[in-house]
């Protein structure tokens, strides 16, 4: 569950961003819509604890992020959140399998081989398990990135412009894939985008101006 109240953030003294109060219940899928510069990425980073020093309150699963120490926040993020970005940002020195081991290792959770197998097969990239990520096609890399985001069964998946670089066909398949894995893992899904194609896919939206 995500709940935001009285949230505002200041990049520089004369550019304060205020955000509307909202609540997202667990398991819901929400779209965070807005034009470039409307602050949707900023909001997403605030929800993910990637930006600090804000005023107001961000509560994730009844934990107020502003009360966590930096180290505790790192740990909380690793255990409860999964991120998907516009570009896949896989670690190119590692294989697909090793990339999928990283979230558990970094969050201090046990690495489960079976979980990696099942996630890879549900995303239909089992055969790429031992491949270097540099050998993957763009679509495969995108799916590997989604696999990495959900491998720890996060309660919240935060996606930042996951589709804006994709054509219509891929756009649709990535979104349905995200919704599907979010449902499988009973995760809350929040997608920040200016991509108008997604409007029709979601019933719940937060509009930023």
């Amino acid at each position: 569950m995500i709940s935001v109240s009285n949230l505002s953030f200041t990049y520089s003294p004369n550019s304060e961003m205020s955000f509307p109060d909202f609540t997202v219940n667990s398991g819901e899928h929400f779209l965070l819509l807005g034009d470039s510069g409307s602050g949707k990425t900023t909001l997403l980073y605030l929800l993910g604890g990637l930006l600090r020093n804000y005023t107001g309150s961000v509560r994730i699963n009844d934990v107020a992020l502003e009360n966590l120490s930096e180290h505790a926040l790192d740990k909380f993020r690793g255990q409860h959140m999964g991120f998907v970005f516009q570009r896949n940002h896989l670690i190119s020195a590692l294989t697909v399998e090793q990339n999928l081991m990283m979230p558990a290792y970094l969050a201090g959770l046990p690495v489960q081989g079976e979980r990696i197998e099942s996630v890879l097969s549900s995303l239909k990239i089992s055969d790429k398990k031992k491949s270097k990520v540099t050998k993957l096609s763009q679509g495969q890399a995108q799916r590997a990135a989604i696999a990495r985001a959900i491998i720890n069964r996060p309660s919240i998946i935060l996606a930042d412009e996951p589709t804006s670089a994709l054509d219509d066909k891929h756009c649709h398949s990535v979104i349905s894939l995200l919704m599907e894995v979010a449902d499988q893992n009973k995760s809350t899904l929040l997608i920040a985008t200016h991509d108008q194609r997604l409007k029709s896919e979601f019933s719940k939206k937060i509009l930023l101006k």
Binding site: R77, G78, H89, S92, A93, L106, G108
Partner: peptide, 16 residues
């Protein structure tokens, strides 16, 4: 830089 940032999103601390 991106690897570092992404690792941080996965829960890696600065010290790590």
């Amino acid at each position: 830089r991106y690897d570092m940032a992404v690792m941080r999103t996965m829960g890696a601390s600065r010290t790590k």
